[in-house]
């Protein structure tokens, strides 16, 4: 349920933001998002409403969190160290 797609805010006017989704722009309502939204922020869009502001830095934080997870795994299993390295070194290319 709940198809949610993140996009980047281009402009904010009152309770409505113009959001860029990979080259497609769409207006998104800000009635229910709980933090002030500014251009440059990411928002999570669900049925035309922003339900969450996502600071851009949180994406990197997510990857760091997954690395930590594997690092904790490593401590239990030294064999896993090399795959954790693979995660860190994973290519950034678009699939």
């Amino acid at each position: 349920m709940c198809l949610g797609v993140p996009g980047r805010v281009i402009a904010v006017e009152g309770d409505v933001a113009t959001v860029d989704f990979w080259g497609v722009r769409k207006t998104v309502r800000l009635d229910v998002v709980d933090e002030p939204v500014a251009p440059g922020d990411y928002v999570l869009n669900h049925v035309g409403f922003a339900i969450r502001r996502i600071p851009a830095s949180d994406i990197q934080a997510t990857l760091a969190l997954y690395e930590e997870l594997l690092a904790a795994e490593d401590e239990r299993d030294p064999m896993a160290a090399d795959v954790a390295g693979e995660l860190r070194g994973g290519g950034g290319g678009r699939p």
Binding site: P6, G7, R8, D20, F21, W22, G23, Y42, A56, I59, T62, L63, Y66, L69, L70, E73, D77, A80, V83, A84, E86, L87, G90, G91, G92, G93, R94, P95
Partner: peptide
Amino acid sequence: MTTSAFVPLRDPRRARALAEALSRLT
């Protein structure tokens, strides 16, 4: 290309390490 910050979260190479962790834990 502005949402490209999310692209690493779809990277099959990065997924491999997590999938292997799943196997070991199971």
